[in-house]
C-alpha cells in the first residue's frame, strides 16, 4: 500500500468500523471445506487403519521395507505396546499409534485411535462410504470456488500478489516471525505470505490430494495409466495422498494459530457474517 493512500484512509477513517470482507459464497464454501476436509481426514485415517503401512512403488510386496508402518506387540506383562516404524527407525507410540484405548475403554491394536477416525469403531466399509461422499462434496465445492474466484475477480483482486507484495516479502517474513499483524487499513488485505500460502493450498496441495486419491482407483488407472506412473506407482500415490493430507493438517494448524493471535473473534465474525472490524490507531494504516 502506498504511503499516500494509507494516510488518506487514516484521515477519513473513523476509529473503528465494520468492513465487509468475505462474500457470502466464499463464507459458505469455506465452511463446506471445513466440514468435508475434517470428515475426509478422519474417514481416511480409518481407511489407513485397514492396512497401516505405506510403501513406495507399484506394489506393496517388492521385497523392500515399508516407509511407514504402525503396528503393535504384546509386552511380557501382557500389555499392548504401540510401535511406529518410520524409515527404519522404531518408536514406541503406545496410547496414540498402534495401541490405544477404544471407546469402551478396552485396549485396542488399531493404528490411529478411535477418536481420530470416522466411524469411531473399525469399519473399512463405512469409512469408504463417508470418504467418497464427502470427497465429491469437496471436489464440487472446489470447482465452484475456482470458477467463482475467477469470475468475481476474487482471485485477481485478493489472492494474486501485486508487485508491491513481492517487494515487501522480506518485511512480511520478519512481521510473521515477530507475530506482528497488519493493523488498520492494511488489515483489509491479505499479506503476501498469506496470499502465497492460500494459492499453494488451493492450486497445488488440494489438487494434489485429489489426483493422488484418484490414482488409487484401478478403474481410473485403466483410463489414465500415465498419471499413476508419474506419481511413482499406485503405492507411491497412496503414500503421497497420506503425506499431502498431513501437509494440509499442518496448514490448518498454522492458519488457525494465525487466526487466534490476530483476533479470533473478529476473524470468526468475518467468516460468518462477512464483517471484519477495522480499528483505526494512532498510526493509522501504516505498516511499521
Amino acid at each position: 500500500m502506498s504511503q499516500a493512500a494509507s494516510v488518506n484512509a487514516h484521515a477519513a477513517a473513523p476509529t473503528s468500523y465494520l468492513y465487509y470482507r468475505h462474500t457470502l459464497p466464499v463464507r459458505i464454501m469455506h465452511w463446506t471445506n471445513v466440514i468435508s476436509l475434517t470428515i475426509l481426514l478422519m474417514s481416511g485415517l480409518m481407511i489407513f487403519n485397514a492396512h497401516p503401512s505405506l510403501d513406495w512403488g507399484k506394489s506393496s510386496y517388492t521385497g523392500r521395507q515399508p516407509l511407514l508402518q504402525i503396528t503393535s506387540r504384546e509386552a511380557p506383562n501382557g500389555q499392548l505396546v504401540g510401535i511406529t516404524r518410520v524409515l527404519g527407525h522404531e518408536f514406541k507410540t503406545t496410547g496414540l499409534l498402534g495401541a490405544s484405548t477404544n471407546a469402551e475403554g478396552k485396549a485396542s491394536d488399531v493404528a490411529f485411535p478411535h477418536w481420530m477416525t470416522i466411524p469411531g469403531f473399525y469399519s473399512l466399509a463405512d469409512a469408504r462410504a463417508w470418504h467418497f461422499f464427502f470427497a465429491w462434496l469437496f471436489v464440487i465445492n472446489g470447482v465452484v470456488y475456482v470458477l467463482y474466484a475467477l469470475k468475481s475477480r476474487h482471485f485477481q483482486r485478493d489472492l494474486l500478489p501485486t508487485r508491491t507484495d513481492w517487494r515487501s516479502i522480506g518485511h512480511s517474513i520478519i512481521d510473521h516471525i515477530k507475530f506482528k499483524h497488519p493493523q488498520g487499513e492494511d488489515a483489509k488485505r491479505y499479506n503476501v505470505l498469506q496470499k502465497l500460502a492460500y494459492i499453494a493450498v488451493i492450486f497445488v496441495l488440494l489438487p494434489g490430494i485429489i489426483l493422488a486419491g484418484w490414482a488409487m482407483s484401478p478403474w481410473l488407472n485403466s483410463i489414465f495409466p500415465g498419471w499413476v506412473d508419474f506419481l511413482g506407482g499406485r503405492q507411491s500415490a497412496r503414500t503421497l495422498h497420506f503425506i499431502f493430507a498431513w501437509t494440509l493438517v499442518a496448514f490448518v494448524l498454522i492458519h488457525v494459530f494465525e487466526v487466534i493471535i490476530s483476533g479470533l473473534w473478529n476473524h470468526l465474525r468475518s467468516m460468518i457474517t462477512g464483517n471484519y472490524r477495522i480499528k483505526g490507531t494512532a498510526h493509522g494504516g501504516q505498516r511499521e
Binding site: A129, W130, H131, F132, F133, F134, A135, W136, S217, P218, W219, L220, N221, S222, I223, P225, V228
Partner: peptide, 27 residues
C-alpha cells in the same frame, strides 16, 4: 444416512464410465 452416503458410490461409477467407457484396459 447410509443411503445418502451411497450417492458417492453412484457418482464414482457414473464418472468412471463417462471418463473411459467400458472398454479401457487395465495396466
Amino acid at each position: 444416512f447410509s443411503k445418502v452416503l451411497a450417492v458417492g458410490e453412484s457418482i464414482n461409477k457414473g464418472v468412471h464410465q463417462l471418463a473411459g467407457g467400458r472398454v479401457s484396459m487395465a495396466q
